[in-house]
Amino acid sequence: MRGLYLSSTVLFWLAVAGLWHAAEAPPEPAINPPSPAEAPASPGRYSTGDVARHGLAEDCWMIIAGEVYDVSSYIPDHPTDPEILLPWCGRDASEAYRTKGKGRSHSAYADRQLAQYRIGTLRSP
């Protein structure tokens, strides 16, 4: 009976660890590179004008700390109301990301997740 208890306990904790590990690894998003018509002269380096042309929910680029992100595919998956991201499409969202609008910063997990959507850096004017 004791062996059954120990085996069940070990299997339970292995299952919990497996589920926890699976939840930690976010799925790889599809990053949509710009079409040749919208590609800037220097790929991976974008101006604020380049970013401003992507100001819609279905085509949403943002500047955060000098980096450019295409978060179009992430908007429906945002943990709070996805509408909170829409005003920042096509704009510099550095301060909004840093403070979440409430003076609190995003988690390290959010920072790691954001990195998946990076498409380039902001080009100096």
Rank of each mutant, 00 (worst) to 15 (best):
Trp88Lys: 06
Ser124His: 13
Lys102Ala: 13
Val71Lys: 01
Ser42Thr: 14
Leu4Ala: 14
Ala96Arg: 10
Ala108Met: 10
Asp70Ser: 01
Leu56Lys: 14
Val51Cys: 08
Ser105Gly: 15
Ile84His: 08
Asp92Gly: 09
Pro82Gly: 10
Tyr117Thr: 03
Phe12Met: 15
Tyr97Ala: 14
Pro36Gly: 02
Thr9Ile: 10
Leu4Val: 12
Ser47Asp: 11
Glu24Gly: 00
His106Pro: 10
Met62Lys: 02
Ala52Pro: 05
Ala96Met: 11
Leu19Glu: 11
Ser35Gln: 01
Arg112Glu: 06
Ala93Pro: 04
His54Pro: 05
Ala41Ser: 12
Arg118Gln: 12
Ala108Cys: 02
Ala110Arg: 06
Arg98Ser: 07
Ile64His: 05
Asp81Arg: 08
Thr121Phe: 05
Pro79Arg: 02
Met62Thr: 09
Trp88Cys: 01
Thr48Pro: 04
Trp20Pro: 07
Arg112Gly: 06
Lys102Ile: 14
Ser124Glu: 15
Tyr109Ser: 12
Val71Trp: 02
Glu67Tyr: 00
Leu85His: 01
Arg104Tyr: 08
Gly18Gln: 03
Ser124Pro: 12
Gln116Ser: 11
Lys100Gln: 15
Glu28Val: 15
Thr80Cys: 06
Leu11Thr: 10
Pro40Ser: 01
Ala22Ser: 12
Val71Asp: 03
Gly66Ile: 06
Glu95His: 00
Ser8Ala: 15
Val51Leu: 07
Ser8Phe: 09
Lys100His: 08
Cys60Pro: 05
Gly103Ile: 08
Leu114His: 05
Glu28Leu: 14
Ala52Thr: 08
Asp111Phe: 04
Ile119Val: 12
Lys100Pro: 07
Ala65Leu: 08
Glu83Cys: 09
Thr9Tyr: 13
Leu4Asp: 13
Ser35Phe: 00
Ala52Asn: 04
Trp13Arg: 09
Ile64Gln: 02
Ala110Asn: 06
Leu11Lys: 10
Pro36Cys: 00
Leu4Gly: 11
Arg53Leu: 09
Ser47Thr: 15
Asp92Tyr: 06
Ala115His: 07
Ala17Leu: 15
His21Lys: 13
Met62Gln: 10
Leu11His: 09
Ser72Lys: 00
Pro76Ile: 07
Arg118Ile: 02
Lys100Arg: 13
Gly103Val: 04
Leu85Tyr: 00
Gln113Ala: 14
Trp13Glu: 09
Pro40Lys: 03
Asp77Ser: 13
Cys60Ile: 01
